[in-house]
Amino acid sequence: MIGFPENLGIAQRGRVIFAIMMRDMRTRFGRSHVGYMIAIAWPLVHLSVLVSMMLYANRVLPFGTDPAVFVVSGVLPYILCLYPARLMGYSVEANRALFLFPVVNVFDVIVARGAIEFLTAFVVAIIFCGALLSFGVDIVPINYSAWASGVLATVYLSISMGILNTVISSIFKMWHVVFVLLMFFMYATAGVFVLPSSFSPAVRELMWYNPLLHCVEWVRSSYYDGYGGEMLSQEFVLWVATTCLMLGLLGERFLRGKLLGA
């Protein structure tokens, strides 16, 4: 006797999620896996343009290191956080037709989309860092564990925001616009291009509530000795992420009927 779909084993869940990932990658742009390259090229171009601009402007940076390192350590959290979270928000809408098959549930499509987005984000990060290294930019952090934990915390925040984003946007169509605005504000106030400490204390106090700022500071603290002491709160990132995750999971559970239909 085979259990009903909602209770199938881990292996079966994995199969469903993997099949949805393959389908998603194949159909995102045009109808071949090659089209998926666009998904990788897009953020890669974004990164390259920003870093080139910064290098061209040749800004005076507060530290003696390569300016590329400063920009990359600021933009990396964006690539690993806001991009995936935004695209995860479309998972239910994009795959709603699949709910015809009872074996597919809401959580599968969210997980599948999340897995693809992180695969993409990491491929982008690896290609970009590899290219910088080959150009002789020293982007190897001095503190590996701080770097790894910073990246993981950023990914955790992203997944949590992504799940909540999916649930809200499946119910309020307007939400996508709100989320883009939110992204813009988070990006603008995360201290990506300008050191947070160069702002006035009043502005800094407001910026402190942006979890992405802490992600940026966290990753940067792995490059610069003694950096991040005044603003960085690792607990804040983890609390915001956990809160979003809980709200997202609760939303998925209680609005499942709506998410399936709608």
């Binding site: 909602e6 109808r31 709910f99 015809l100 098959f101 009872p102 399936l260």
Partner: peptide
Amino acid sequence: GTELPNSGRISRSARVSWPLGFSAGLHPAM
């Protein structure tokens, strides 16, 4: 199981198909 009841439970102890007769769910571009 593609639509949920407002209350109560539906349990399946067999492999149940999707409701045949709808060809939605197939991707037009594939």
